[in-house]
Design a protein around this nucleic acid. Structure first.
Lengths: 130, 130
DNA sequence: ATAGTCACTTTCCTCTAGGTACCTACTATA
DNA sequence: TATAGTAGGTACCTAGAGGAAAGTGACTAT
């Protein structure tokens, strides 16, 4: 393990430690996780194929990968029913639900500021020198 | 452009539209943007090399790319001083600062729930069957 | 006998983000 | 003369993420 001196040095040089939100970003905002959590949050408990259909463009391989990761992180519970054909249900956990206000905050920022970003991009692109 | 019927169909099949936070996530939480914005927010106006040093592991090429993107999105202002050697300063904008409460919210969630994620991972990994 | 369902798994392939290393112009300094 | 400092640009390369498509196993319905 690293000593205190090392951890201080890390905090000065490691971007993960320099920004206190990096760890959360990796967990919550890695690719496909927001659509999955959002779908599970709004539509409730869902089967694999239902999730696939609701999200639309995700492939089964990637959906499995993301669900496993979310399960490991405690955001999602997987329930396997050994029937034929097999039935698996995914549900968002309490921990996953605790992200809801954060998502709402995000959506709120978006509704108020997304057009400003759009305008900034338009203005930037309007300058021919770049 | 697409009619209403098409937009409804899109909302059902396109993950970007299925989840109202996807657009913001792409803008705010793409790789390296949080450390950059965080550094600019806490340390104030900075020169290129200073940013490079503060963030630590980022390469100049990627730092340039991210800064250009953030500038285009209106999160950062670039001020070029045609001196020798050249001097360029980057500063966070009002729009960029408006993300601060969001980041604080994120950090707050992290401080209360990151250990739960850690525990969930530990428990998951403790089961030998996978 | 064949097809279909579900929840994946596996193989193969592509694409791109990101890293390394070198280049630019200009001046002050040793 | 040579080197350092500044803010990048550019060419090349690699690893890994992610997509497409087919396979799997166990059973059911036709």
């Amino acid at each position: 393990m690293a000593g205190d001196a090392d951890r201080v040095a890390d905090a000065a040089t490691d971007p993960e430690l320099a920004c206190p939100t990096s760890a959360v970003v990796d967990i919550v905002f890695s690719r496909w996780t927001t659509p999955i959590l959002w779908t599970l949050h709004t539509h409730g408990r869902q089967r694999f194929v239902e999730l696939e259909r609701l999200i639309g463009t995700i492939t089964p391989k990637v959906l499995t990968q993301r669900l496993r990761q979310l399960e490991r992180d405690g955001m999602v519970v997987r329930t396997y029913h050994p029937e034929v054909p097999p039935r698996v249900e995914y549900e968002i956990t309490e921990l996953g639900r605790s992200l809801a206000p954060l998502f709402a905050h995000l959506a709120e920022w978006a509704s108020g500021n997304l057009d400003k970003v759009e305008r900034a991009r338009h203005d930037y692109d309007a300058v021919p020198s770049r």
